[in-house]
Structure formats: C-alpha cells, structure tokens
Nucleic acid binder design. Structure first.
Lengths: 222, 222
DNA sequence: GTCATAGTTTTCGTATACGATTTCGTACTC
DNA sequence: GAGTACGAAATCGTATACGAAAACTATGAC
C-alpha cells in the first residue's frame, strides 16, 4: 500500500512522469518545504526538456504542493502554521463526510482488515516507529474509504493527505500523546460502523478524530 | 458581482489570460459540455501560441471543468448525471461547513445585505428570470462566505460552483418548484445565523439546502 | 450493404531557441 | 559604513518546429 517510486512504462507522457516524480520526491521528503524547484534543473535530472516539467509543476501547484511565482519560480509549499490549520480543518470535514458515506457499504471482512491495520499501529507504538505509524494511519482510513461512493470527496481527502505529507519534515510532527488516543478512536469508529450507527454519529466521530490532532497541535503552540 | 470578461492588463502571463478566457467561455456557456477544445484553434483565437493554452487547459482539467485525453485532446467536461450527483453532494458538504464556519463572524450589516439579495431573488421569481435567479443565488451565499475563516474550503465551494456553471445549458436546470423553497430556506438560514444558533444546526440547514436541490433533481429522473 | 484495411489528415507531445524579467553582486556616492 | 545604481547572470515565459499518435476517409473484399 506504500507508494512505489514508479519508473512507469514509457506509455505515460513525460509531463505525467515528471508530475509523479516530483510529487513523490515532495511526499517522501527529498524536496522539503521551501526547496526551490528550478525547471531547467529538474528537466535535466529527469532527462527531458522543460515544457513537460513546467506542466507538472503547475499541476502540483493546483494541488497546493507547490507555490509558483511569476518570473521567479517554484518552491515546495507550505510550512505556514495557518496553512496547516486550514488543511487539517478541511480534512476533518471531508474525512468525516467520506467516512459517513462509506460506512453503510463496509462489510465485516473490511472491518477485519481495518482492525488488523489498527493492531499493527498499536505495535508500532510499542516499538516507537512514528514513520510507519503515520503510514498505517493513512492505510487504516484508506481501507474504510475503499467503497466510498463519491470519488470527488475521496479526491479531496487524498489532496489533504498529500499536503500533510509534504509538511512531514517540518514543525508539524507526530504527537506521541495523540497516537494512543488515535488508535483507541479507530477502534471506537469501527464499532460505530459495525453497529450501523446513524450517519451523523459516524460523521461526527470521524471528524472529531482529525480535529483532535489539530487541537493537540494548537495546544503545543499556545 | 458578475464576472467581467476581462481583457486584463498585459501584466498577466498569457497562460493566465488563456486560463481566464477559456474558463469564462465555459462558465458563460459559449463552450458547452462536449465541446472540443483544440489547442491550436484556441491559441489562434486568442492570438498566442499553444504552450500557454495547453497549460491553461491542464489547469482547467485539474478543476474538473475540462476532460483531457492523451493524444486525443480536450473537451469541456461533464454532462454525466453521476458527475452531477457527486458535485452536488460534495458541494452540500463544503457549503455546509463554510456556512457554519462563517456564521459566527457575520455581522448585522452583512445579514441585511444577504436579505436584500434574497428579496431580489423573490422578485426574480415573480418576473420569472431564472438566469438572474441563479446568479443571485450564488451572490447570496457569497455574501455569507465573505468572512469565511478557511480559504481552502471557500476554494472548494467555488470549484463546485464552477462545475455546476459549466453544466448550465445541459439537462440540469433551474427547478421552478425548488426556487420558492430555496428563497424560504435562505430566510430561515439568516434567522438561524441571527439567533446565533449552534454550528451544528446551521451546518445541517445549509447542507440540507443544497441537498434538497439534488433530491428534487433525482425525483425528476426516477 | 457491411466490414476490414491502408493512406491521409488532424492534433497532440516535446525539444529547442530566444526574448523578458528578476535577482544577485559590485562599484560608486553620500 | 550604509545605501543606491548599474551591470551580469540566472531563470522564467512563449514561439516555433518537428516527430508521434490517433482519427478520419476512401477504397476494396466478402
């Protein structure tokens, strides 16, 4: 479920390849926030010309991963705490909605898989492996969203995740105190889904799950 | 508040101009869904070369207004009823959230302005002016969102609106029966905001306001 | 009359080239 | 020593050009 680096078949356009390559580098942390993305340099690294690279960068800009300034250039976006707040708040809303929409379509087997992921997360806590924990956290929700009936909302969720991923090596980090609660909330969420709770209850729980992490962050800064 | 056609100052990059121009044409209905956007042709129309046009089209694709297929070309997106459902559902969620977030920041003067817009909408109903009604409807919500504290969510709202606008001349239309209810719901919403109702109540009302239109549409097709 | 096939045309995809703008470094002035 | 002005370098923005893929059309076989 981890994103493979993808040196995809030549059937993909170069702009597509450039997009995937730069995006991967941002998400995996090679290019950290503030890193200057010089078109010519990236083009040379990837082995093709600037036009497709430029297109890729603009696409990343549309997703909020890159900040582009006219006649100046592109940089990896966003260490701004305000931006973090916006992203988390938005994510809280769309994740809540995605969970509520998906819940009625989740079968017991899927619940079991999600529970297995959550169990792994518990183990990560014991061995203190925050990187894997974060990845699993995303996997957990991905499992829940597998049958999400609205791809638009799912897309918004993914965009939010990407944004957060790009902030990985910045000031916004894994909060140890939250992690244990997070695992507990996951289990509570699964039980709500199993018991076919009404959409509203599930949405609130899922929303709160994300919002609590934001609150934990805000608490550390105030 | 209506979008002026904008033959903006030459201080804007051509790709930016192309983006605005094509977007405007889609939203105003010159390019209807299915219309084929040939890069070379648009470039010639606008008086510059294909590269910036290409970039503009890709940007519009990211916003969902255009569908782009490798080695085939671009067409104006989306008359698909499914797509309409996704968009409306998403819009219901993000508008609900935007309204709830904005509500505490709305002052009496703003309420008054919103009410004035709503009054105009009532008059539009009497003269049967659906085009203006639709525009005013957007204005109404724009007024409410003026102080929305989360620009990301506001951006999602605008994207949804643009998508809907692009569908204007398609099968999804002004539903006369809904319009009267819509005006009533606007007033109810204003009263909730005035009375400082809790965020949850406001969010539900705003969400339902959009969802009801979707339901009305679905009722006509079933 | 329908289907398959080959050739033509259209259109996209990307490389290269050059002009425009910004930035950075240096020298000069106060 | 601080600030400003000028020039050089870096980088972006767009035009043009050509190769590649797909779509269209016409021709022929069954």
């Amino acid at each position: 479920m981890t994103e493979t680096a993808v040196e995809s078949a030549a059937t993909e356009s170069k702009s597509q390849q450039a997009y995937a390559a730069v995006k991967a580098r941002i998400i995996e942390g090679t290019y950290t926030p503030g890193y200057r993305l010089v078109l010519a340099k990236i083009a040379e690294d990837l082995g093709f010309s600037v036009v497709p690279v430029r297109e890729a960068i603009r696409r990343l800009e549309a997703e909020g991963l890159v900040k582009f300034e006219r006649n100046v250039g592109a940089t990896v976006a966003g260490i701004d705490p305000t931006e973090y707040l916006y992203t988390m708040q938005t994510l809280s809303i769309v994740e809540g909605a995605a969970t509520a929409l998906s819940a009625p379509l989740i079968d017991p087997a899927t619940i079991a898989r999600a529970r297995a992921v959550n169990q792994e997360m518990r183990e990560c806590l014991e061995h203190f492996d925050p990187v894997r924990f974060t990845a699993l956290n995303q996997d957990f929700h991905s499992v829940l969203f597998e049958h999400c009936p609205n791809p638009h909302i799912l897309d918004l969720v993914h965009r939010g995740w990407n944004r957060l991923a790009s902030l990985r090596s910045s000031t916004f980090r894994f909060v140890p105190g939250r992690a244990q609660e997070s695992v507990r909330e996951h289990e509570a969420l699964l039980q709500l889904i199993e018991s076919a709770a009404d959409a509203d209850t599930i949405e609130k729980a899922a929303r709160q799950h994300r919002a609590a992490t934001l609150d934990a962050y805000l608490a550390t800064t105030n």
